[in-house]
Design a protein around this nucleic acid. Structure first.
Lengths: 143, 143
DNA sequence: AAATAAATGCGAATTATTTGCATTTAAATC
DNA sequence: GATTTAAATGCAAATAATTCGCATTTATTT
């Protein structure tokens, strides 16, 4: 992680490295709260938010919004994956494989006022198996 | 608008109707702040947020997240459109036409822990023509 | 017109994110 | 390795976003 930071002209500080490790090790995008919990050494929330913002501006991480009313972040790994979010319990799963990038130029033609497309995000909202089972069980229980 | 509300079992109140009109008339998803400004009669912010939440739960509107650190909402019209967001100035444009829904079943097979997909959101992040021109002008200006 | 559950407004509380400033620290230089 | 310095951190306080409790009002039902 230190190398990544230095290559972007950032100082390889302990808090940043710890934060990047947390993000890298997580299987789903991480919120400020979660990051605070998972970073061993207590890291001030201001530092977390500042790190999110600088890492985002250097395209080391990218912001992901999941309709949870607070931001999440994941590594900006350039691989083309997206997210499934359970509208019942909020669980998030990464899934991979889509061809949206290959359609950038077509979408750009359709957009009147845009010059370039640089990223996209694709989120699916549905019900996870756990919640689906619970609902079914509830239904069966009705007198 | 009154009919839509009543059909969902909601009272057709003035604040809600005014809010729905604002959302319907906007060409891009609306935030709480924008809604507050555009609704003629002063509508309390708590009322706005409560309306957003009840309308969302009834699938009359849907939440849209644009990496702006606050939520936006648009009519839940079931048509398959998405958004372009300028990473420089934040401008948002709706564009239409994609075939993501036709790929739901394939994505569902790829997702280990999900039972259903009910919605998706697809956002493109790029640079609008206005910002692109500004940047170019700046570049040209460099000694 | 009266009854009633639902919705609003207001104020205050939470939660999310940012800012100012004194102190610390990574990296560059000697 | 010690010195220097700009960048980053921590702390406290500020601002923004969202929610909550409760008394009052209002859309619907009777």
């Amino acid at each position: 992680m230190a190398g990544i930071l230095r290559r972007s002209g950032l100082k390889a500080t302990h808090p940043r490295i710890a934060l990047l490790n947390v993000i890298a090790e997580s299987s789903a995008p991480v919120s400020a709260q979660e990051a605070a919990k998972r970073v061993g050494k207590k890291m001030d929330q201001a530092t977390i938010y500042r790190a999110f913002n600088t890492l985002k501006s250097k395209k080391i991480i990218r912001q992901v919004d999941l309709r949870h009313n607070h931001a999440h972040y994941e590594l900006f790994d350039y691989d083309d994956h997206h997210h499934m979010i359970c509208i019942s319990c909020g669980k998030v799963e990464d899934i991979s494989g889509c061809e949206v990038e290959s359609m950038y130029s077509a979408f750009l033609r359709a957009a009147r006022s845009f010059a370039t497309i640089e990223q996209h995000s694709l989120e699916f909202y549905g019900v996870c198996k756990t919640c689906a089972e619970k609902t079914q069980r509830k239904t069966h229980t009705i007198a």
